[in-house]
Design a protein around this nucleic acid. Structure first.
Lengths: 145, 145
DNA sequence: AAATATAATTTAGCCTTCTTAACTATTTAG
DNA sequence: CTAAATAGTTAAGAAGGCTAAATTATATTT
């Protein structure tokens, strides 16, 4: 059981993919002039879909005051919109603007830009086998918590 | 060529693995009371091996003054040692203390802790095929820049 | 030996991000 | 209808992290 190379190999691969992905993502962050806080918030807002200020704060692990201030900056930069909720005028509906969505996608794209190079190093046959293997991983992975 | 599902599938998997890995890692950062800057620096110091203050700053993309101040805090927390270089007394040799190495390993461990759960969801046969596929990816991945 | 270069640090100041506490507006409960 | 709860904002202040510039100590060059 401890001889099963599955988990160690998976860790190796994650080590590799995190190294390239983070390098590219940090480079993107620098170039775009956005802080990791801002990019993280954009990602969370995307994940949450339409949501309130406090909810975002909870997901980021900060107070609603901090979330409000963070959103100020994102709104000012045109990345996020903040509108009154029609049914409850206390709450603000937060969402990404078109520009916010563009930045989100560009960040993800930058993070993954090394994969095309990787693909070039593989034969069709290797790619087929790897694709099949990864599809199993994705399916099972999405079943975790 | 655009029909090859390899890269899209790889992206899906990276999406999944980043989601779990980052969630666990951020949780670890909170629990350990260390900022992402500090953890990032620890990782870079580990990668560089024994190195000087300026060199760390370059890798982190900050001035040597900033690196020096960052190292102050890490030394104070007992995670990093800073000793005179025997051959050139201008330079300080920076390295992780035992506690620094412990934190590094704990962070990596936290990041990867979801993989055991994933392994439990797979048959031996699936694991074998996936392991073989990932070994190819790791080998080719390490050949990139 | 003197001048120059290099490595690290210290200082002062700026900007960001966070927290707590006070405040406004709105909704819900009694 | 009033009291309490909820959502968000604002203000003041602390902490972190950055830079540029000055400073110290050591090495290297001439």
């Amino acid at each position: 059981m401890s001889l099963d190379p599955f988990v160690p190999t998976l860790k190796e691969w994650i080590e590799v993919s995190m190294r390239y992905s983070m390098r590219n993502f940090l480079h993107f962050a620098r170039e775009s002039g956005l802080s990791m806080s801002h990019l993280g918030a954009i990602y969370h807002i995307h994940q949450l879909g339409s949501c309130g200020v406090t909810e975002i704060g909870e997901h980021l692990g900060v107070t609603s005051a901090a979330a409000s201030q963070l959103l100020d900056r994102l709104v000012q930069q045109g990345l996020v919109h903040r509108t009154e909720h029609p049914d409850d005028r206390r709450v603000k509906q937060i969402g990404l603007t078109e520009e916010g969505q563009r930045i989100l996608k560009a960040g993800i794209q930058a993070r993954e830009s090394w994969l095309d190079q990787l693909a070039e190093k593989l034969s069709s046959d290797e790619k087929d086998r790897i694709t099949a293997a990864l599809q199993v991983l994705v399916a099972k992975g999405n079943q975790l918590g």
